[in-house]
Amino acid sequence: MKSFEWTNAASLDEAIAQLGTGVMVKAGGVDLLDRLKEGLESPRRLVNLRGIGGLDNIRSSTGDDGDLVLGPLTTLAAIEAHAGVRKRFGALAEACAHAATPQIRNMATIGGNLVQRPRCWYFRSADFNCRKKGGEVCFALEGENQYHAIVANKVCAIVHPSSVSTALVAYGATVKLKGKAGERVVPLEQFFVLPDKDPRRENQLGADELITEVRLPAPAKGTGAAYHKQTEKESFDWPLADVAVVLELDGRTCKRASIILGAAAPVPWRAKSSEAILGGRAVDEHAAEAAANAAVQGATPLAKNAYKLPIVRAIVRRTILAAAGGAA
């Protein structure tokens, strides 16, 4: 790791004021240190956000049943353990509980989780100058692509590294961004960008912006949600596929479905056809199976990752049924 300047920001504004070329912010620092150790980046200065108070709150916007508001420095462990989150946003709690290791969940923040860089092994190795680093090649397209994207994978085949965002997008989360020009609120789904636009980035966070809040709208009455991360190992492992399902139900009938696939695309991927199949239908085995089959229609698997298709089908079907079964 190359040496750098270190500052402890006293406020978000003070941190934002310092942002610029060669300056990086540090929240939990987990993903950042990983990249610095590999030599993928060598910032001139690190701006530490951890000393700023009040950024790690979990609260409800009104009473006990308002929007869920997460401070950007809230750790995944805190979210996982929070009784209110477990009760009202169970799929989010599940996603946090299955991220990384217990140690890392104690360190990693929700804000950092959303802007972490991909786990693609070509990207993570300084030996490969891939498209994401400004190079001309996506090595995964013809190379070792077992764990890569099965849709939207023509330019750069990463999968988005945040399995927590799979649940957040399914809940319709928004992020508040603050920069030198002021604040803006962006639906998380639009926050992430596909490589076709710019393979060098995974989101639309501006160079002088920080995530200052993550907000999940209060679930409608009759909402059922579930999350499943399918891994090879149950101890710390990256997902082969993960899925979050949020269903607005009227009895067994689905009024609205939100189905997001993780580890399938360079961004959390909305399974629109699956959602359409469930809309207005009673959620049963047949509906779940039809929706699951639709989830991977049109997928373009690479040479070594077609095995993901049956996995996605299986976990989408199971998770739809779990969400329907767990409706409040």
């Binding site: 040496s3 750098f4 300047e5 270190w6 500052t7 402890n8 920001a9 006293a10 003070e14 200065r45 951890r50 000393g51």
Partner: peptide, 14 residues
């Protein structure tokens, strides 16, 4: 106290 605010330090030992 030292965690809060303050000027940049380093590179070099601090």
């Amino acid at each position: 106290e030292s965690v809060k605010g303050g000027a940049a330090v380093g590179p070099g030992a601090v």
